[in-house]
Amino acid sequence: MATVRRFDHGSRVPGWDQSVDLSKDPAVVPDPASTPVPEDLRVKIEDAVRRYPDVRSASIPALHVAQDHHGWCSPTAIEQAACVMRLTPAYLASVATFYDMFETVPKGEHTVYVCTNISCSLRGGDQIYEAMLSAGGDDPSFNIRSFECLGACDIAPMASVNGTYVGPLSEADCQTIVEDLKAGRTPLDAKQIRHRLKATSLSAEGAPAVGGVDVASGPSASGNDTAGDKDM
């Protein structure tokens, strides 16, 4: 029987005692007079708020904006968003902790989500994740996460690199991604999803082989045998 791992404070849950400080009063809606908010952050959040009949609906857009500005949903970021929206920081924190894309701890500026869900793992997604970790895992400017299905199983195994979908990836591509990001280039331009034609237009030879990790080149966009002659 394996022993249950416990943290220093005796609980199996990390940080259970950090979430509340009973000696303090709960944070109220931040005072605009004492909460400096960067101007572009304020403009973007106010623009988002105008789109909805209820101000709270702009929570996710506001948190996206705040995270882009501060790098993560820091207490400062949440306080500033809460100040503009006239909500309590606790409300926005409750939203931020629900969604996978909001980071509640500091992280590297380059975000790489490697899909390791069913379709990608059938084609080597787990190996790509390992390769990605060994290529950039030690670099604090990278935030490499294994992610649930990103909705691009046609280019499996794939990853979302700073929001750009690339695939099908080989293990060698992981090093290229790290180098591209460090050099400030767009990652793996030839394998980005925006270039991909519909599946029936791709030539049979250009299609990636199963196994994923040994695929050297991406799907060719040259074949055009069936497109265009369809009757509606």
């Binding site: 789109r51 909805y52 209820d54 101000v55 709270r56 609906s57 702009a58 929570s59 996710i60 857009p61 948190l63 996206h64 409750s94 939203v95 629900f98 969604y99 996978d100 894309m101 909001f102 649930e148």
Partner: peptide, 27 residues
Amino acid sequence: LWVHRGAGAYICGEETALLDSLEGKRG
């Protein structure tokens, strides 16, 4: 008509969770 971006939660594809998320709550 507006575009509303989510933030990574499978459950928000369920229609009532989607509504909660669109109202700015946890999904």
